[in-house]
Amino acid sequence: MKKKNTISSTEAITRYIFDIKHYAATKRRIKYNAFLPIRGETSIFRVNNLGEVQIWEIGDNHVAPMSSRTLVARGDLIASDIFEEGLEIKPDTRNHKLHANIVGWPLKEPEKAKFIATELADKAQLHLKP
Protein backbone atom coordinates (compact mmCIF):
# COMPACT_ATOMS: atom_id res chain seq x y z
CA MET A 1 0.00 0.00 0.00
CA LYS A 2 1.39 3.39 -0.96
CA LYS A 3 2.36 5.55 1.95
CA LYS A 4 0.52 8.84 2.07
CA ASN A 5 2.59 11.97 1.65
CA THR A 6 2.78 13.92 4.87
CA ILE A 7 3.77 17.12 3.14
CA SER A 8 1.25 19.51 1.65
CA SER A 9 1.29 19.75 -2.13
CA THR A 10 1.59 23.53 -1.86
CA GLU A 11 4.70 23.52 0.30
CA ALA A 12 7.71 25.39 -1.00
CA ILE A 13 10.79 23.25 -1.50
CA THR A 14 14.33 24.17 -2.39
CA ARG A 15 17.36 22.28 -3.62
CA TYR A 16 20.63 23.97 -2.72
CA ILE A 17 23.24 24.00 -5.47
CA PHE A 18 26.99 23.95 -4.93
CA ASP A 19 28.34 23.48 -8.43
CA ILE A 20 27.96 25.75 -11.43
CA LYS A 21 27.53 22.70 -13.66
CA HIS A 22 24.09 22.30 -12.15
CA TYR A 23 22.63 25.36 -13.79
CA ALA A 24 22.88 27.56 -16.86
CA ALA A 25 22.98 31.16 -15.73
CA THR A 26 22.49 32.65 -19.19
CA LYS A 27 19.32 30.70 -19.77
CA ARG A 28 18.27 30.99 -16.15
CA ARG A 29 17.64 27.30 -15.85
CA ILE A 30 18.50 24.46 -13.56
CA LYS A 31 20.00 21.42 -15.23
CA TYR A 32 18.69 17.92 -14.78
CA ASN A 33 21.80 16.71 -12.99
CA ALA A 34 20.99 18.98 -10.05
CA PHE A 35 18.08 16.69 -9.21
CA LEU A 36 19.50 13.27 -9.95
CA PRO A 37 19.41 11.13 -6.81
CA ILE A 38 22.39 9.78 -4.96
CA ARG A 39 21.72 6.43 -3.32
CA GLY A 40 18.05 6.86 -4.14
CA GLU A 41 17.59 10.26 -2.57
CA THR A 42 17.72 13.91 -3.53
CA SER A 43 18.32 16.20 -0.58
CA ILE A 44 15.97 19.18 -0.27
CA PHE A 45 14.73 21.65 2.29
CA ARG A 46 11.21 22.66 3.14
CA VAL A 47 11.16 26.44 3.02
CA ASN A 48 7.50 27.29 3.28
CA ASN A 49 6.86 30.76 4.66
CA LEU A 50 10.55 31.53 4.90
CA GLY A 51 11.93 34.75 3.48
CA GLU A 52 14.80 34.95 1.02
CA VAL A 53 17.28 35.82 3.73
CA GLN A 54 16.27 32.87 5.88
CA ILE A 55 16.41 30.47 2.95
CA TRP A 56 19.93 31.52 2.04
CA GLU A 57 20.97 31.41 5.68
CA ILE A 58 20.00 27.76 5.93
CA GLY A 59 22.07 27.04 2.86
CA ASP A 60 25.05 29.05 4.02
CA ASN A 61 25.06 28.18 7.68
CA HIS A 62 23.85 24.62 7.67
CA VAL A 63 24.07 22.91 4.29
CA ALA A 64 27.28 24.40 2.91
CA PRO A 65 29.41 23.45 5.94
CA MET A 66 28.15 19.89 5.72
CA SER A 67 28.85 19.70 2.01
CA SER A 68 32.31 21.30 2.24
CA ARG A 69 31.36 23.44 -0.71
CA THR A 70 30.30 27.02 -1.35
CA LEU A 71 26.64 27.62 -2.01
CA VAL A 72 26.16 29.12 -5.48
CA ALA A 73 22.45 28.85 -6.24
CA ARG A 74 19.25 27.07 -5.43
CA GLY A 75 16.31 25.62 -7.32
CA ASP A 76 12.81 26.22 -5.98
CA LEU A 77 9.88 23.90 -6.50
CA ILE A 78 6.57 23.30 -4.87
CA ALA A 79 5.84 19.88 -3.46
CA SER A 80 3.21 19.11 -6.09
CA ASP A 81 5.90 19.38 -8.80
CA ILE A 82 7.54 16.41 -7.15
CA PHE A 83 4.38 14.42 -6.46
CA GLU A 84 3.26 14.82 -10.08
CA GLU A 85 6.34 12.89 -11.13
CA GLY A 86 5.38 9.97 -8.93
CA LEU A 87 7.98 10.80 -6.31
CA GLU A 88 7.57 11.37 -2.60
CA ILE A 89 9.07 13.70 -0.05
CA LYS A 90 10.34 12.06 3.08
CA PRO A 91 11.28 14.30 6.01
CA ASP A 92 14.75 13.61 7.38
CA THR A 93 15.23 15.83 10.38
CA ARG A 94 18.32 14.22 11.87
CA ASN A 95 20.49 17.22 11.07
CA HIS A 96 17.94 19.96 10.45
CA LYS A 97 14.25 20.21 11.19
CA LEU A 98 13.43 21.36 7.65
CA HIS A 99 15.50 18.81 5.80
CA ALA A 100 13.83 16.17 3.64
CA ASN A 101 14.64 13.88 0.74
CA ILE A 102 12.93 13.26 -2.56
CA VAL A 103 12.48 9.50 -2.66
CA GLY A 104 10.70 6.95 -4.81
CA TRP A 105 13.04 7.27 -7.78
CA PRO A 106 12.78 4.42 -10.28
CA LEU A 107 16.27 3.18 -9.59
CA LYS A 108 15.92 0.11 -11.78
CA GLU A 109 15.06 2.36 -14.70
CA PRO A 110 17.83 4.98 -14.82
CA GLU A 111 16.47 6.35 -18.08
CA LYS A 112 13.14 7.05 -16.42
CA ALA A 113 14.90 8.64 -13.45
CA LYS A 114 16.77 10.93 -15.82
CA PHE A 115 13.53 11.83 -17.56
CA ILE A 116 11.98 12.75 -14.23
CA ALA A 117 15.05 14.79 -13.32
CA THR A 118 14.73 16.76 -16.55
CA GLU A 119 11.08 17.43 -15.79
CA LEU A 120 11.85 18.60 -12.26
CA ALA A 121 14.65 20.79 -13.57
CA ASP A 122 12.24 22.45 -16.00
CA LYS A 123 9.79 23.15 -13.22
CA ALA A 124 12.40 24.51 -10.84
CA GLN A 125 13.06 28.19 -10.56
CA LEU A 126 16.70 29.15 -10.46
CA HIS A 127 17.91 31.61 -7.84
CA LEU A 128 21.53 32.61 -8.00
CA LYS A 129 23.27 33.36 -4.75
CA PRO A 130 23.23 37.13 -4.21
Binding site: K21, H22, A24, K27, R29, K31, Y32, N33, L36, P37, I38, P110, E111, K114, T118, D122
Partner: peptide
Protein backbone atom coordinates in the same frame (compact mmCIF):
# COMPACT_ATOMS: atom_id res chain seq x y z
CA UNK B 1 25.41 20.13 -26.13
CA UNK B 2 25.82 21.12 -22.52
CA UNK B 3 28.26 18.62 -21.09
CA UNK B 4 27.82 17.86 -17.45
CA UNK B 5 28.74 15.39 -14.75
CA UNK B 6 26.24 13.06 -13.16
CA UNK B 7 26.33 11.98 -9.52
CA UNK B 8 26.85 8.31 -10.36
CA UNK B 9 30.10 9.06 -12.18
CA UNK B 10 28.53 9.33 -15.62
CA UNK B 11 28.56 12.17 -18.10
CA UNK B 12 25.56 13.73 -19.79
CA UNK B 13 25.34 15.49 -23.14
CA UNK B 14 22.24 17.65 -23.06
CA UNK B 15 20.77 19.46 -26.01
CA UNK B 16 18.34 21.87 -24.42
CA UNK B 17 16.02 23.81 -26.68
CA UNK B 18 13.32 25.11 -24.36
CA UNK B 19 11.17 24.00 -21.46
CA UNK B 20 9.86 20.56 -22.35
CA UNK B 21 12.13 20.29 -25.39
CA UNK B 22 15.46 18.63 -24.90
CA UNK B 23 17.50 15.57 -25.69
CA UNK B 24 19.82 13.96 -23.20
CA UNK B 25 22.46 11.37 -23.88
CA UNK B 26 23.99 9.89 -20.77
CA UNK B 27 27.16 7.82 -20.76
CA UNK B 28 28.03 5.70 -17.77
Amino acid sequence: PDIGPEPDGGIGLEWYKDKGFSFLVSIN
